[in-house]
Every structure is written in structure tokens, then in C-alpha cells.
Write a protein that binds this DNA or RNA. Sequence first.
DNA 1: TTGTGTTTTACGACCTCC
DNA 2: GGAGGTCGTAAAACACAA
Length: 229
Amino acid sequence: MYSNSHPARYLAPTLSSQYIPSSYGDFSDYHHQVPEFGDPLCDTPTAAWSRAYAAPREEWSTFGHGFPGSSPIAGQASYETPEFTALHSAFGGGSCASLTKGPGDPFTNSVISKSYEWTRDSWLPVSRGRTRTKDKYRVVYSDHQRLELEKEFQYSRYITIRKKSQLSLELHLSERQVKIWFQNRRAKERKLTRRKQQVSQQASATSQSPEEANSDPPPRTPPVPPVQC
DNA sequence: TTGTGTTTTACGACCTCC
DNA sequence: GGAGGTCGTAAAACACAA
């Protein structure tokens, strides 16, 4: 598919499977999908809250996805997508480093008590387990989880193996969930880009001759994922 | 409240790359 | 063969007008 090099393969064993207990019960809010602190998943203090976002990151690459308003360099980032803005304001705005556990923290905002079980990828309510495949249906990630994922997405459209491992631990998601979130996020961006292109083409078509307006769009150049470390 | 459209997780099929 | 990529789609969750 890609003419260039593919992302590097795993250099270290994946971590997710090591943290999958056989069963788990009682978390607060299904929507937040996060086990209470004190269980094996959470005993390791998450570094999310103390993470230094000023640290050097992977080289930014646009891969042909123009990303308005953002031209991050290593060590810098701008979060200007609607997704990020919405999530960011959900946390009261401010700097990323100012996020602290407290009233605004979805981890502590949970209320409901339900029984959950760990499936291959995530915690699911036992009583409602049913989907198109087996006993599984999608969960809703917390604002905090989406915010962190979105921030990482702004740094790089393609998550590195190391970052994926780190995020899965910090956000209590499996590496597979992080990977699929990034895949879906890229798909969303492509969809939005296509939509914008259609709008601009329609706009320009009105000022073009019909012959020009019917011409084929330029061939699509697939993005080249970065080499992962 | 309800009907409907959109967004968000999750997966399968199929692809390339090593 | 196994990893992750895109693409298309299912279905839950969500938003919102009527």
C-alpha cells in the first residue's frame, strides 16, 4: 500500500495482556470504564497527570494531511481542532499540565455501581453484554481518555509503539483500543478532509466551465506513516 | 417523548511490509 | 505469519428538532 517504509514493528513485548485480570467488578460509571484505584490495573500511579508535555516528541509529519493551525515542531504543539478544544474546555481550559485529579476529573465523577467483566479489550457491563459479535458492545471513553488521545493525535497522526504502550497504561485502555482509536481518528480526519474538498470543489465548479468541473480529482497520495521507535 | 441524523467504538476484509 | 495500515460497516451513544 505504501511505497515507503512501514512503521517499525514491536521492539518490546506488548504490555496489555499482562494487565488483563480474569474478572473485575464494581466500577463506578460504565461510561468511564475505568477501574477504581486500588485494583491491579491502577496500582501503578498514572503518569498522565504529571506528564511533561514540553518534552521532545516524535517528529511531526503531516503526511499530506494538511492540518490547519498546527505546525508542531519537536517540543511544541498546538491543539486547535474542534475535538481538542471541546475536550480541553470540558476540563476547564488551562494548560495541559494543570489537569489534576479533582471535581473535574472523570475518574472521580462516577456514580453508578455495576458488575463488569474484562473482555479481550475492555471492561464491559456483565448484564448488558450483547453485540453483533459475541457478548460485546462498544464502550464510551471518558473525556480524560479522549483528551489524552486527542493530544497525542495532534503531536502525531501515527502513534509509536512506545507511546501506545504508555497511553494504554495511563488511560487504562488496551493497546489494541489505542491503536483502533488512532485508526478511527485518522478515518475521521480523512472524512472531514473529503467533505471540505467537496465543498470547495462545488464552490469552484460554479465558477468553472462544466468541462473543467467534471474533470477527475487528482490521484490520492497515501500518507506515509513515520518510522516508529 | 420520539424520531432521525451524526458520532463514536469495534470489528472484518484485505492490503503491504518485514 | 504477524504486525499495523485503510475501508466499510454495525451498533451504541449522543444531539436535536418537532
